[in-house]
C-alpha cells in the first residue's frame, strides 16, 4: 500500500478525497499517531480560519455597499445599459420589485427598512422580522412546515417548489405565494424558524400549474438556490422524511 503523502493528507482534511481514498487515510490514521496529529493540526487551522471569518457573514452590511445594489441607483452605475440595441429596455416600465436579504442591509438603511415595513404590512403577515432577519410567519410558515411538493394542493395559498439540504447542513425550500401580490422566495430552516434569504414579486403561475417550474422563478430566487444547492433536490420520499424529522 502506498504511504499517505502530504497532498493526500491535505485533501483528506479538506474533504477533497473520494470515499475509497478517504477510507485508506482513515485506516492509516488509526495506526499512525504522527499522521493523526498532523491531521488534527490542519483541522485546527481550518477551524480557526472559519472562526475568524465566518462572523463577517452576520455583520450588518454597510449602507453605502447595499445602496450600490438598489435598482433605483441604476442611473449612477455606469454601463448598466448594454451597448447595442438594448436601450429600448431601459425605458420599459420597471415592475417594482422589493427584495429581502439576511437583514443586515435592511437594518443598515433606514429608507430600505421603511420600505420593508410597508411591504410586510401589505404582505398579510406571512413575514416576521427578528433581529433584522426576516422569517416566515402565518400561512407561509405553516405551509413550509407541512406542505409537500409531492402532494400539491391547487387551492393552497402557498405552493412548495424544491426542497434540498445545503452544504451547511440545513434544509431550504423554495415556494410561491399565490395570493396577490404573487411572490416567490426561498426559506431555509434555522433554530429560529424559516429564514427568508430572498422573497420576490413574481409573475402569477400560469393557469392550472400546480408546481411552478424552476425556470419560472424570479432570477434572484434562482440565484439564491444555486448559491446553496449542493447535490440533489429531495425526491418525494426524502421530502416526506424531512418533514417527519421536522426539517432538521
Amino acid at each position: 500500500m502506498n504511504p499517505i503523502d502530504d497532498d493526500t493528507l491535505q485533501a483528506y482534511v479538506d474533504g477533497a478525497l473520494d470515499a475509497t481514498e478517504a477510507a485508506r487515510v482513515d485506516a492509516a490514521l488509526a495506526r499512525d499517531e504522527v499522521l493523526a496529529s498532523r491531521v488534527r493540526r490542519m483541522r485546527a487551522l481550518n477551524a480557526q480560519l472559519r472562526a475568524a471569518f465566518d462572523p463577517v457573514l452576520d455583520e450588518p452590511v454597510p449602507a453605502h455597499l447595499s445602496a450600490l445594489l438598489q435598482p433605483q441607483g441604476e442611473s449612477t452605475v455606469p454601463l448598466t445599459v448594454h451597448a447595442g440595441g438594448r436601450a429600448a429596455n431601459v425605458s420599459r416600465r420597471r415592475v417594482p420589485r422589493r427584495w429581502l436579504m439576511p437583514g443586515a442591509a435592511l437594518a443598515a438603511s433606514v429608507a430600505l427598512l421603511a420600505a420593508g415595513l410597508w411591504w410586510w404590512r401589505a404582505g398579510d403577515d406571512m413575514v416576521r422580522m427578528r433581529n433584522g432577519e426576516s422569517y416566515a410567519a402565518g400561512v407561509l410558515d405553516h405551509a413550509l412546515n407541512h406542505a409537500l411538493a409531492s402532494e400539491p394542493d391547487a387551492r393552497a395559498p402557498v405552493a412548495i417548489g424544491l426542497s434540498f439540504r445545503t452544504a451547511e447542513g440545513n434544509i431550504c425550500r423554495s415556494f410561491t405565494i399565490r395570493t396577490p401580490p404573487s411572490r416567490a422566495g426561498l426559506a431555509c430552516h434555522t433554530a429560529e424558524g424559516w429564514e427568508l434569504p430572498v422573497l420576490e414579486l413574481s409573475a402569477p403561475a400560469r393557469g392550472g400549474e400546480l408546481r411552478q417550474a424552476a425556470s419560472d422563478l424570479p432570477p434572484a430566487v434562482q440565484v439564491a438556490i444555486d448559491a446553496r444547492l449542493r447535490g440533489e433536490v429531495f425526491d418525494a420520499r426524502q421530502e416526506r422524511a424531512a418533514r417527519a424529522d421536522r426539517w432538521r
Partner: peptide, 22 residues
C-alpha cells in the same frame, strides 16, 4: 435584464463577498 439578475444575485452574495474580502 442580465444586470438585474446580477444585481439581485450580488445582494444575496454580499455577506460572502465581504468575508472573502476580509
Amino acid at each position: 435584464h442580465t444586470s438585474d439578475a446580477v444585481r439581485e444575485g450580488l445582494i444575496a452574495l454580499l455577506p460572502r463577498l465581504r468575508r472573502l474580502a476580509r
